[in-house]
Computed example of a mutant assay.
Amino acid sequence: MKDLTVSAIDRQNILNNLSAVADIQEYLGIRGMFFQGEFRFTKNQVVEFYEVDSSTIERYLSNNEDELKHNGYEIFKGKKLRELKAEFGWLLEDGAKAPQLGIFNFRAFLNLGMLLAESEKAKALRSAILNIVIDGLNKKLGGSTKFINQRDEEFLVSIAREPVYRKEFTSALNLYLDMGAYKYAVYTDAIYKSIFHENASEYKKILQLEEKVNPRDTMYAEVLKLIASFEIGIADAMKEKSEEMGRKLTPGELNILIQKFSERRFWIPQLEDARSKMASRDYGFRNIIHDRLKPYIKCLTPDDYQRFLGDKSKSLQDRIDENIEVFKRLKDR
């Protein structure tokens, strides 16, 4: 089980999952002071809930100030503090006359509970949080995150175009590479390794895919687009090189061509983006770590949760059913 007290990425992944945060708040049943669209909590209320002393809270605020402020902890003063006192002064106790006051919203309140190692109540909350997050995923996805990538509305477009670009690449291998049929698997792997440092079998093992599953069915739209760009780009480069030499390429020559192609500077931003999205989403959604992509793991954004779990996310079959007439027209062209 993940240790939320030590992993900033795991904490932020939960806090950016606004649906899970709402479920956790409902589970806890605490409301606080509803002020300017959010429930708010004073330091005294936090002390009371987590059953720790005030100095412990102050220490965590000092040591984790940037993270807690990022998630909604604020120092109220001036007009904002006056408005809070006017509405909830009777709840502020010692802070009623203070010139400034530290206030937690629910996300910051939850953030602190993920950090507090001294509190037994926080420890129990952390366990409940992880269960609620898992239950939320299971409820939305039916227990499996293997094909969560397909819930993105961009996936259908990417996977529909994929065979066209794939055919250009395999045709180029057939026309311009002097090697047997094994070349198709070898150079598909070469592209995968250039982009995300894993060949097909390694990728399938990490995701625990059955042999019959096509790895691309589990890849995110951004990764599929980059694979397509590599495939058509390398196909063009192979044709140009073969025509220049007046013969087919050897495997060694193609290896050099692919290496030089993938090292061109204009690929760097796209490669960084694809690796980061694969590493971060697989860690956050699938609880999977790609060892060679560890440096690229970042926290998921609220937009990631909206894309794959929000109102606009749908199963691939639902999207196909919605667009079936469009596919029929394209087929008849």
Rank of each mutant, 00 (worst) to 15 (best):
L309Q: 11
I103K: 10
A98E: 15
D66P: 00
I297E: 04
I258K: 07
V6E: 06
L18M: 10
V326T: 13
E253T: 05
R265E: 14
L81N: 14
I256T: 10
E58W: 02
P163E: 11
D217T: 13
M238Y: 05
Q259V: 01
D3N: 15
G78V: 12
E231W: 09
L257I: 10
L4T: 14
S54F: 11
L209R: 11
P302K: 09
S313N: 10
E154L: 01
I132P: 08
K248Q: 15
S19F: 07
K2C: 02
I234D: 08
N17S: 12
K80A: 12
G246H: 04
L173T: 12
S262G: 03
Q317G: 00
G246R: 05
Q25C: 02
R82I: 03
L271S: 03
Q36E: 15
L177T: 06
V223A: 13
L68I: 10
K225S: 09
L112C: 11
Y283T: 08
I234Q: 06
D53C: 06
V157A: 05
D178N: 05
K193R: 13
D291G: 00
S194C: 13
R59F: 06
S171F: 03
A235M: 08
R82M: 11
G136D: 10
V21H: 11
L116I: 06
E120C: 00
G102K: 09
D321M: 07
Y220H: 14
I9Y: 03
V46P: 13
N149S: 15
G113N: 07
G113F: 10
M33E: 07
V46C: 05
K2Y: 12
V133N: 08
K241I: 01
A228K: 13
I320F: 10
S54N: 09
M179H: 06
S194L: 04
E202P: 14
N44D: 15
E211I: 02
E322S: 13
D66L: 03
D135T: 07
